[in-house]
Design a binder for these strands. Structure first.
Lengths: 112, 112
DNA sequence: TTTATATATACCCTTTAAGGAATATTCCAA
DNA sequence: TTGGAATATTCCTTAAAGGGTATATATAAA
């Protein structure tokens, strides 16, 4: 999977990773905290974090013994931009279609 | 996977499904058209469409022999809303943190 | 240097995903 | 009612995901 957007979407498509991301939204946390709060095993937590890391959704700030995971904002901005423009294009296509149909209708059955 | 958002994200996380969705953005199409344009086998196209259907990303409009797949707007609106509010919350948390740190700094080392 | 703590990795197992080929189903037309 | 076109489904195979347990690695403290 080389597509960046697909990778972002995939990383977020697992419920546990989604929970991790929602948790990190409230602030950076070390692995152990994340595992504890979400009742996940530490190894799985690390593995999920690795997926998020490879999708650039998080970054690591080493602090002594621990590794603090921070959310990155860029991928979310990218996701918002994509989804929003997608929506926009769908809607404007539909609007154009409606307009076209109205005009066609008026041509067949003119009101004045 | 019962979480609606996770299901949406998963459905979109496959590159072929992403292509299908991008194609359908330009307008509704029957299965055969989708398969032809994306050079996918018909069975796989049907299977991918099923995943999209179960995630409520598309709807079917039967037309004689064929089944026309339409994109639905709601899930994209939901995705945009989620991602946007997510972003928003991240940013506002960071802003609060900056403000706090500035105040703390001013208290230690007052300018006037 | 040893020890403890936090985290990452390896290995195993089970489940699920995705592609291909063949077949079933549906609906229209003749 | 038979045939053909469009689509869905089934079966098979391969690859990858996710969870569990054990172990390796790294860093700080004793």
């Amino acid at each position: 999977m080389s597509d960046g957007l697909a990778r972002t979407l995939f990383a977020l498509s697992d419920t546990n990773r989604l929970k991790i991301v929602e948790l990190l939204k409230t602030g950076p946390l070390p692995v152990g905290e994340i595992a504890a709060q979400l009742r996940l095993n530490q190894p799985q937590t690390s593995k999920h974090l690795k997926v998020l890391l490879e999708a650039d959704l998080v970054r690591i700030e080493p602090a002594a013994n621990r590794r603090i995971y921070h959310l990155r904002t860029e991928p979310f901005q990218g996701l918002t931009a994509w989804s929003q423009s997608f929506e926009q294009q769908m809607i404007s296509r539909m609007t154009r279609l409606e307009t076209y149909l109205e005009q066609k209708q008026n041509a067949v059955n003119p009101k004045e």
